[in-house]
Design a protein around this nucleic acid. Structure first.
Lengths: 193, 193
DNA sequence: GTCTATAATTCGATAGAC
DNA sequence: GTCTATCGAATTATAGAC
């Protein structure tokens, strides 16, 4: 382990590691866990396949590193209660289109137990925490977060994975206007009698 | 091709074929397309792996046969317009829990292009037809069907695939009471202004 | 740090005996 | 119709030279 001459000067290995991670996210997002091969990822990153093993130990290890993800949910305490749904849909749409990591995680979660576990962690921890910040009955917090997750993941699944034509063609503003009321009710409403 | 002595007496091969299909649905539902192997399916069905190839030609052919699915959507013309959402959620929940074929299709659709194509067919054809039976503006029919699909598939994805705890623990009646109004608005409502 | 060579599996698919 | 034997390809992972 030789220290770099300057802390701001990345070592060569850091550049390689970053290139591997970027290629891995692309492949996992496009092909899913099983079909994405270390060889293909290495080819994309223009490095030798053995480097992937050297840096990440195994395919599982590589996926774990590549699928690190933070929803970066906004603090809802600053948002008018009536606009929770609107803010959340917009946030998720932007987060989704700007970072393919979550698509990779979504695809992999269907077949890879580790990916499913991470998915549960992200939506059970990060989303539940965000829902808990405003004054919801604690007894219903997890349930509300789960319902929000069901609509958000269903949106992503139909739009980015299955690519259902009407869901692909909807522009973001229309999508927001349809889905925001759903999330709003899951977050602050009551089930129908 | 020798005809059976009685039409009601299935040939031996029919029994074998049915056993293969049942095992295939189980494996595809549990493991997804790539991890489900012909060898494992054959072992479950207590037959030789080569039989699978003989009857279905290839792994793709086997999946195509195993993932045949009909949503069996009820005729909505007999349903009071205000209860469309309620009827649909109940129908989907029952259909989902009673037949693992759709779970197999859902898992496989994440990574297998053919499965995704079939998924698009099912939800773009069968569901859109059902939505079109009542007097919706034809211009919005496909969109409404797509939105319904997003919530229905998100429900299935979180409950049966990722197994998000709050979504697994919700009993069917609670689920219906939360999700029915969502579908109702997607089917008959307008987006928020 | 990087690459070559290869081990060790596993899979889909085929050929052919019975 | 059923099974044995096996091919050929692809994969993850390892060992070790440079």
């Amino acid at each position: 382990m030789t220290a770099p001459t300057h802390p701001t000067q990345p070592r060569r290995s850091d550049v390689t590691r970053a290139a591997i991670l970027r290629a891995a996210r692309e492949r996992f997002a496009a092909d899913g866990y099983e079909r994405a091969t270390i060889r293909a990822i290495a080819a994309d990153a223009r490095i030798d396949p053995s480097m992937v093993m050297r840096y990440y130990g195994s395919k599982e290890g590589l996926f774990a590193a590549a699928a690190e993800f933070d929803l970066r949910l906004p603090d809802l305490t600053d948002v008018p209660p009536g606009r929770f749904g609107d803010v959340l849909v917009r946030h998720f749409l932007a987060r989704w289109e700007g970072d393919e990591t979550l698509v990779a995680l979504l695809r992999a979660a269907s077949t890879n137990p580790g990916a499913a576990e991470r998915m549960r962690g992200i939506f059970a921890d990060q989303l539940t925490s965000a829902v808990a910040t405003f004054g919801t009955d604690p007894a219903t917090t997890a349930r509300r977060a789960g319902l929000v997750a069901s609509q958000i993941l269903g949106l992503a699944f139909t739009r980015y994975i299955v690519r259902l034509p009407p869901m692909v063609e909807l522009d973001p503003e229309e999508l927001v206007s349809w889905v925001a009321p759903t999330l709003q009710r899951y977050l602050t409403g009551q089930p129908e009698s």
